[in-house]
Simulated scan of single mutants.
Amino acid sequence: MPFAPLQNDTFLRACWRQATDHTPVWLMRQAGRYLPEYVATRAKAGSFMGLATNVDYATEVTLQPLERFPLDAAILFSDILTVPDAMGLGLSFEAGEGPRFACPVRDEAAIAALAVPDLDKLRYVFDAVASIRRALNGRVPLIGFSGSPWTLACYMVEGAGSSDYRLVKSLMYSRPDLMHRLLAVNADAVAAYLNAQIDAGAQAVMLFDSWGGVLADGAFQEFSLAYTARVLGQLKRDGADGTPVPRIVFTKGGGLWLDAMRALDCEVLGLDWTVNLGAARAKVGEGAQGKALQGNIDPNVLFAPPDRIEAEVAKVLQSFGTPHADRSQPGPTHIFNLGHGISQFTPPDHVAALVSAVHAQSRLLRA
């Protein structure tokens, strides 16, 4: 089905390192529990997976933040663990406990049995992408996403979230051959999953390497970065409407490895709040092969009063430096975001203050 023309392409232009009239802004986890309307819709759905697997509900909650805030992009409402769930690991979400797998993968037999899942098991995700794209009606671009191969492996081996990553790191150090097998399957599954999102209408795709930063130097390059690169190398370059699709990689705690990440075949690098944007721009954002940068205000800034939020927004914009203004050629660009996901306790009015400040202040910087 043909999609409506895009009315606000600021986010995509910034991804391609093209000059924009303002710094685009969207927020990781922007559709979520901090919004009372989301809580109401989730109650109707009965559970998180009831919400994520219902196309109408997933469409509704994806659009909810856009009704409140003039954000420059929408992101698919789903979860990073849909892929291992489709592999048969039995995903569930217990109240107050987060995600859990009934069948974690911890030995040679379990890893040998893993395979790229039948994508029909994830049809609900692709149907949601198409539904959301139609519902947006060209208002802003739609971002699809997946967890990175390493981050998925952490949950698959641990069976849930972890405070010390003891089980997954024990496997990695004691049987690196098994870990490489697991990561290879994950990478190929993630690539197929993202390509199906692109075919369904996603206009940008993002890899969340949420736990890459827990690895030691050397281990990060071998067990995380290499498999992120394997995913990127398989991704389609053009979307359902023939428009090029930019690729975003976000590694929480990855600031140490920006030099290595510069070589990734992607357009945008996401940064957490520990990284100075100006230093990152000098390292990976300049030159013909530079990356657009995304980030990176501390999500907890949103608990401060609006005037302090505005002051912190100014610091982030100023740390990136003078905006790229030459429309005849690409240059360093910035997409404003949080350094990680928004907290469920965030006051919505504070999000409104942040979005307004980003737009107003970034326009002034270009005046």
Rank of each mutant, 00 (worst) to 15 (best):
C103K: 15
A58L: 06
V125E: 06
Y124G: 09
C103Q: 15
A43P: 00
D21T: 13
M87N: 08
Y34S: 06
K44I: 05
A19W: 08
W26E: 01
A86K: 02
T23L: 06
R17W: 11
R42V: 10
P84I: 14
F48H: 09
D21I: 01
G96Q: 05
F93L: 07
A14M: 13
F93E: 01
V105K: 09
D120Q: 14
R33D: 04
A45M: 05
S78Y: 03
P104S: 12
W26T: 03
M87V: 01
E60S: 14
V39P: 00
M87Q: 15
A86M: 04
T82R: 00
Q30C: 10
L71I: 11
F48N: 02
F69M: 03
A95K: 15
D120T: 14
C103D: 13
L35S: 01
A40F: 00
L91V: 12
V55H: 11
T53H: 14
E67W: 00
P70I: 01
S47P: 09
K121F: 01
P24D: 08
L114I: 09
Y57N: 13
A73T: 02
P36V: 02
A102M: 04
V25C: 14
D21N: 13
R33M: 03
Y34E: 03
A73N: 02
Q64P: 02
R123K: 12
D56K: 13
A86W: 00
E60Q: 15
G32M: 05
A130E: 15
G46N: 02
P104E: 05
T41S: 09
Y124W: 13
F48A: 03
P104M: 10
E108T: 15
A130W: 06
A45K: 08
A128K: 12
P36G: 01
V105A: 08
F101A: 10
F101P: 10
A130L: 08
C15I: 00
R123Q: 14
R29V: 05
A95F: 00
S47L: 05
G50C: 03
E108P: 13
D118Q: 14
